[in-house]
Design a protein around this nucleic acid. Structure first.
Length: 417
RNA sequence: GCGAUCGUAGCUCAGUUGGUUAGAGCGCCGGUUUGUGGUACCGGAGGUCGCGGGUUCAAACCCCGUCGAUCGCCCCA
């Protein structure tokens, strides 16, 4: 009919997802590649995990009342009516795999992975609904040396990313199960006695997650936080020894840290060591890597008591600190300044690539502008092929004096048939 | 989930107290210069002003809603 076709609207990307491209994508890849290299130095084995799990995997391990479980999970029923959830974190799924696959035979097991995670949150810079993390876990190791090795790896990663000087390691201990419960009870008592002075948020936290009051940013809470009972007064002898072994191990490894006795973890399964690498360069999303010991987690999934430590790091946040890193510079630009030389230029491009050079071919668009386009790509070496008065001409010029492989490139160019 | 700011070309942004056909720079495409040269000049394509309503003779501009981004809170890596 004469009815004008209704142009199909292009669907929008989902809120909180990102299409990463250009320098951001290069920085992202740089973070992942650096992690892969460092993780091998520490002999952490690579694992690949499903992106979704039965909902109970997360509900049981993270704690039903945590915000992550109660309002931030992407859960849905599959066609069989089973409740599944897009993973909001790595640890629970890895713990499940450890139990269901009998990985106990490999204990102590050091594993590393990375990939997308999903949380239904209000997006912000450095906070997305689909975001990406690096993850490292040591499962079946109850010794403080495991904590030290894991932290040393995190520290080395940040150094190799060249962002360590803007980031500080904050360290705390939550004690063993009984110390933690005693401390928690004392905190509840302390804050309940001044309940009406607390911020609304903290009054709510008093019910749901009293430890979290300690890192409240609200001024009204500060004084009461300062006078709150300290974990150190509730630590058992073993818990003290454990923390002491971790800190002296870090000192011996040359890992710089500061004690923050108000540092707690949001998830219920943590015990003993808790830590965060924090920067002030990312606004409210300052935690760049965080983790701790989760000795209670395996039991919550119905497995045997199994000690474990782990950390996760936000790739986007790390990548933002590595801005401009990771882009490979162009070694050779080849311009075909006449269409008659397109085939020669393509052959030459192939030749150099097979010799392991990073090459870009400029043989499209206006022949007169190809040279300029090639120059703008900022190659170390510029090669131009042209046709003058019926004669094939060619030229190679080294634009970057410091370029190490110039001689080899020249040889290949001179010896081409 | 709460509060605030913002949304104009591929990108960065102008656009007066509402007033003809919405602009610039960069980028892209083409042409001319130059002819071992990242030059200069000319031209071109590209916008339902995020989307939907409302007020008005008239809306990019004012009002409401909605979607999205950013910054805090919350949460967390």
């Amino acid at each position: 009919m004469s009815k004008v076709k209704t142009p199909a609207k292009t669907p929008q990307a989902i809120r909180g997802t990102q299409d990463i491209f250009g320098p951001d994508a290069e920085a992202f890849a740089f973070v992942v590649e650096t992690f892969e290299r460092v993780r091998k130095l520490y002999r952490f084995r690579r694992v690949e995990m499903p992106v979704f799990e039965k909902t109970e995997v997360f509900a049981r391990s993270l704690g039903e009342t945590t915000d992550v479980v109660s309002k931030e999970m992407y859960s849905f029923d599959d066609r069989g009516g089973e409740s599944l959830t897009l993973r909001p974190e790595f640890t629970a799924g890895i713990a499940r795999a450890f139990l269901t696959n009998g990985w106990k035979q490999h204990a102590p097991l050091k594993v590393a992975t990375h990939g997308p995670l999903f949380r239904y949150e209000r997006p912000q810079k450095g906070r997305y609904r689909q975001f990406h993390q690096l993850d490292a876990e040591v499962i079946g190791a109850g010794e403080p040396q495991a904590d030290v090795e894991l932290l040393a790896m995190a520290d080395q990663l940040l150094h190799e990313l060249s962002i360590a000087d803007g980031v500080t390691l904050q360290l705390n201990t939550l004690g063993d199960g009984t110390s933690r419960e005693a401390w928690r009870a004392a905190l509840v008592e302390h804050f309940a006695s001044v309940r009406d002075d607390l911020s609304e948020d903290s009054q709510e936290r008093l019910e749901k997650n009293p430890l979290r009051i300690l890192d409240s940013k609200d001024r009204r809470d500060q004084a009461h936080v300062a006078s709150a009972p300290k974990i150190d007064d509730f630590l058992s002898g073993e818990a003290q020894d454990f923390f002491g072994a971790v800190t002296s191990g870090l000192d011996a490894a040359g890992v710089v840290w500061t004690r923050n006795d108000a540092l707690v973890r949001g998830l219920d399964y943590y015990r003993h060591t808790a830590f965060e690498f924090v920067t002030d360069r990312l606004g409210a999303q300052g935690t760049v890597l965080g983790g701790g010991r989760y000795d209670g987690l395996m039991e919550s999934l119905g497995g045997p008591a199994t000690p474990a430590v782990g950390w996760a790091a936000g790739i986007e946040r790390l990548a933002m600190l590595c801005e401009g890193r990771g882009a490979e510079s162009l070694e050779i630009a080849i311009a075909a300044e006449s269409n008659d030389r397109n085939a020669d230029a393509a052959a030459l491009t192939n030749l150099f690539r097979r010799e392991g050079f990073c090459v870009e071919l400029f043989a499209s668009g206006s022949p007169r502008k190809r040279y300029d386009k090639a120059r703008k790509a900022e190659p170390a070496i510029m090669i131009s092929l042209d046709m003058r008065d019926g004669e094939a001409t060619h030229g190679l010029s080294v634009l970057n004096e410091g370029y190490a492989r110039a001689k080899k490139a020249q040889e290949i160019f001179d010896n081409r048939k």
